[in-house]
């Protein structure tokens, strides 16, 4: 990944011990992805990575690598230009 390395600008919230972080479930519609990596780049919990798999069109879709880290903020869903990824409140 060339370009400037990611510097985190936000600090640990003061009430992070009292607040119960939500748990999200990520859904990826693999064949719809065009491999732009926006979601991987900007997921605040670094839940995703580009997979080595190919989808039907020959793109590498993202894959969840840190199971249980998703907080259902649906940033990935909002930034995805292909409507190929979204999150819902985890049911389990």
């Amino acid at each position: 990944m060339q370009g400037v390395t990611q510097t985190k600008f936000w600090r640990e919230p003061l009430d992070s011990d009292q607040v119960e972080a939500p748990l999200g479930q990520v859904y990826i519609i693999n064949d719809r992805c065009k491999g732009c990596e926006f979601c991987v780049e900007y997921c605040p919990r670094d839940v995703l990575e580009m997979s080595d798999e190919f989808n039907r069109k020959g793109y590498h879709p993202p894959v969840v690598t840190k199971e249980g880290a998703c907080v259902n903020c649906n940033l990935c869903e909002q930034i995805c230009p292909e409507f190929a990824i979204f999150t819902l409140e985890a049911t389990s």
Binding site: Y27, I29, R32, K34, G35, C36, F38, Y59, E77, Q78, I79, C80, P81, E82, F83, F86, L88
Partner: peptide, 26 residues
């Protein structure tokens, strides 16, 4: 399950024509 944006888009026409990494979809 169904992508939450489904009611707002013509899903039968997705994937759309815009290039990988283009910002229009966003």
């Amino acid at each position: 399950p169904e992508h939450p944006v489904t009611p707002y888009l013509r899903m039968e026409r997705i994937p759309h024509v815009w290039c990988p990494g283009c910002g229009i979809g966003t």
